[in-house]
Amino acid sequence: MSRRRDLGWLAAALLLLIGWDLAGADLAVVRWFGSPTGFAWRASWWTSGLMHEGGRWLAWAVLLTLVAGIWRPLPAFAGLAQRERVGWVLVTLAAVLLVPLLKRVSLTSCPWDLAEFGGMAQYVSHWRWGVGDGGPGRCFPSGHAAGAFAFLSGFFVLRPHGSVPARRWLAGVVLVGTLFGAAQLVRGAHYPSHTLWTAWFCWAVCLAGQALWQLHRPDLPR
């Protein structure tokens, strides 16, 4: 039942994202923060320093804590079997690595590269595969948001042990990922959909990881 519900959320989110792209909402939202001279918040302390650089260090700290927790878990995770803690780390790493791989083949440039914001690129939807926009590309999806949404893996690991801790973890990850995405949006580093697609890809990776885990543990709820 849980798997069907999870897949249902994934499918519903896909439809919403497709609708967002078809509506051309990305450029409309970015224009709220950009001007012909660029993005005023691009290099501010709270967006560039706290949310971007600080957020990167936070993601690394959480990941290293999970890795160390394979052998010496935090008290809150002591009830997890070691194989569960290993799976948590592996799925998180898979989500973290997927986004940069997608970015490497993306021809989509960042909003701050657009000509109307002082750059040289022209807006082209990231779904027009093979069509360049005249800029450097490699901006879709959001790698920074993956530093939060990759940890959606914890929801699936914690859920069999209780819905309350799993939901709290989920809420925390969504909150941090939203803050990361908002900071990158006002900086001109990413469109809203870049963050949303990152969350979608990470959720899909977590579902795939859960399915593989259940193949080896048929006793777990589905």
Rank of each mutant, 00 (worst) to 15 (best):
V176P: 10
A208I: 12
R85D: 08
L16W: 08
S48R: 11
G49N: 10
Q210G: 03
F156Y: 10
P111W: 07
L50D: 06
P136K: 14
E116I: 11
G19W: 01
S193T: 13
V62C: 13
G132M: 10
R3V: 02
E116F: 05
P36I: 03
A59Q: 11
A76C: 07
S153N: 03
W20H: 08
G177P: 11
G34T: 08
V176R: 06
A11P: 07
A150P: 06
W57D: 07
A166N: 01
L179E: 07
R222W: 09
A13T: 14
G188A: 06
A199Q: 09
C139V: 06
A121M: 01
S35D: 12
M120V: 15
L98I: 00
A95L: 12
H216P: 04
V91F: 07
T195P: 08
W129R: 00
I70Q: 03
L15A: 15
R5H: 10
T92W: 01
V89H: 01
W127P: 05
W129K: 00
R168E: 03
S193D: 14
R138W: 06
D26F: 00
L16P: 07
A68T: 10
C202R: 00
M51F: 15
L185I: 08
H161T: 10
P100D: 04
A12R: 02
R222E: 04
A13M: 14
G177V: 05
Q122H: 14
L114S: 01
A121K: 04
G162T: 00
V96N: 00
A94Q: 09
A25N: 03
D113G: 03
W197I: 00
G143K: 13
S44R: 06
P221L: 05
R168L: 14
A13L: 14
V30D: 14
V174T: 04
